[in-house]
């Protein structure tokens, strides 16, 4: 259950989510300050701490297109945001899974800023409008990474297994 705090359109690139000029900043503890840096209003709201964790960004098609920069996922993860989009660009989606940023593929989503959404295993319910939308489950192999808590613990477990530990 979370509130939509930002609604955006199609083809939101990683240059919009995390502008290239901040790429020298890599630590997940430091990247959130530059999330949507060129959207002064939204960036300021994020930094003010007014959004509770599990607040939601609703986006159109191809969210996260462009660069492979992982900062685009880590900066949103830092605020505990959930991204509900019609669909995601491949690398951004994989980075989100690897870092544990919650992404929901919901091809028909209809929601506006201020709406309350309930996110189920295979649906998104807009509590404000009462409309329910199907969401696409992740492939099993990707879900396994999320269940492990992200790619670092997942890889660590494989490494230990290979080392016979």
């Amino acid at each position: 259950m979370g509130k939509v705090v930002f609604k955006t359109g199609d083809d939101i690139s990683t240059d919009i989510i995390y502008p290239g000029r901040f790429m020298a900043t890599v630590l997940p503890t430091e990247t959130p300050q530059y999330a949507f840096a060129d959207d002064a209003d939204f960036n300021k709201k994020l930094k003010s701490g007014e959004f509770t964790p599990n607040s939601i960004i609703v986006a159109g098609q191809n969210f996260g297109c462009g660069s492979s920069r992982e900062q685009a996922a880590s900066c949103l993860k830092g605020y505990g945001l959930v991204i509900v989009a019609k669909h995601f660009s491949r690398i951004f989606m994989q980075n989100s899974i690897n870092l544990g940023l919650q992404t929901v593929i919901c091809p028909d989503i209809e929601a506006n800023e201020g709406d309350e959404l309930e996110i189920g295993d295979n649906f998104v319910l807009n509590k404000t409008t009462g409309k329910k939308f199907n969401s696409e489950p992740l492939p099993k192999a990707r879900q396994a990474i999320i269940d492990a808590g992200g790619l670092i613990p997942y890889t660590k477990a494989l490494l230990m297994k290979r080392a016979g530990k």
């Binding site: 890599v26 492979s68 920069r69 992982e70 996922a73 690398i91 994989q94 980075n95 690897n98 870092l99 992200g150 790619l151 670092i152 997942y154 890889t155």
Partner: peptide, 8 residues
């Protein structure tokens, strides 16, 4: 790929 995936 992303940086974490590369670390893997």
């Amino acid at each position: 790929i992303g940086a974490t995936e590369m670390a893997s």
